[in-house]
Simulated scan of single mutants.
Amino acid sequence: MAREQGRKLIAQNKKARHDYAIEDVYEAGLVLQGTEVKSLRQGRASLVDGFVDIDRGEAWLHGVHIPEYSQGTWTNHAARRKRKLLLNRAEIEKIERRVSEKGLTVVPLSLYFLNGRAKIEIGLAKGKKTWDKRQTIATRTAQREVEQAIGRRLKGMKD
């Protein structure tokens, strides 16, 4: 069987981009068990409650739900176990330094296969206040209205 090429999205954490201001993004590999990979290939995962913790120079992914493989046997994995992230030592040290200094947190943004290997996109994030969220929504709707008005003008329609 030929190796997969390209990027295949499995799960995305849209709530993270709403609740946090993402400052920096990193791509990391995942250490998975066989049944976890099979479950991911079926497109089943949830990143909603996930976060990254750095412990003794290693990055760990907590709270990500990868359901048990339906055709698995007694070798099935635990759905919410902690999983090791594969990052360079320099990246881990940089993330750890910024989290301790600025009070940032690390959240998973998306989970995907890249050329047949499971990857996760994590982001250094700072929590948004309620007014920040409202301001983001207001600018997004204003931008959408401007684009719609320009589209109507180009079509020759009246406002």
Rank of each mutant, 00 (worst) to 15 (best):
I137A: 15
Y20D: 01
K128R: 15
E91V: 14
H62A: 03
T73S: 15
H77E: 06
V106D: 11
R97W: 03
I95V: 07
L124V: 13
R3V: 11
T130I: 13
V64C: 06
A28S: 09
D53F: 07
V25A: 08
G29C: 11
A21D: 15
D24M: 04
Y69N: 02
K126R: 15
A125D: 01
Q5K: 14
D132C: 03
Q143W: 06
R7H: 03
T73C: 06
Q143L: 12
G63T: 08
N76Q: 13
I95M: 10
A21P: 02
A59E: 12
A16M: 06
K84N: 04
M1P: 12
G43Y: 05
T141E: 15
G57H: 14
T139P: 02
A59K: 09
R81P: 04
M157F: 08
Y26L: 14
Q33T: 01
Q71K: 11
A45K: 01
S110W: 03
Q148F: 06
A149L: 13
D55W: 08
P67K: 05
R134W: 11
G29Y: 14
D132T: 10
R3W: 04
A2F: 03
K94Y: 12
S100L: 15
R98A: 07
R41L: 11
W74M: 10
D55G: 00
E27S: 00
G63K: 07
A125T: 02
A142S: 11
G156W: 15
P67F: 02
H62S: 02
I66M: 07
G6T: 04
V99I: 15
L32M: 11
G50Y: 09
E4M: 14
G156F: 12
R80D: 04
A78I: 14
D49N: 12
V146R: 10
A59P: 12
A79S: 12
S70W: 00
S70K: 04
V25L: 10
S100E: 15
H65P: 00
K158T: 06
G151P: 00
K126W: 10
V31C: 10
H18K: 12
L109G: 02
D159S: 11
S70M: 00
K15E: 11
R98Y: 14
G123R: 13
A45V: 01
I120F: 00
R56W: 05
I54W: 08
A90D: 15
R98S: 08
V107W: 11
G127F: 03
Y69M: 02
Q33R: 02
Q135W: 10
T73E: 14
V64N: 04
E58H: 07
A45F: 00
E93M: 04
K128G: 08
A138I: 13
G50E: 11
N76C: 09
D19P: 04
P67C: 09
F51G: 06
K155V: 09
N115C: 10
V107L: 06
L47H: 13
H77I: 09
R98H: 15
L154E: 15
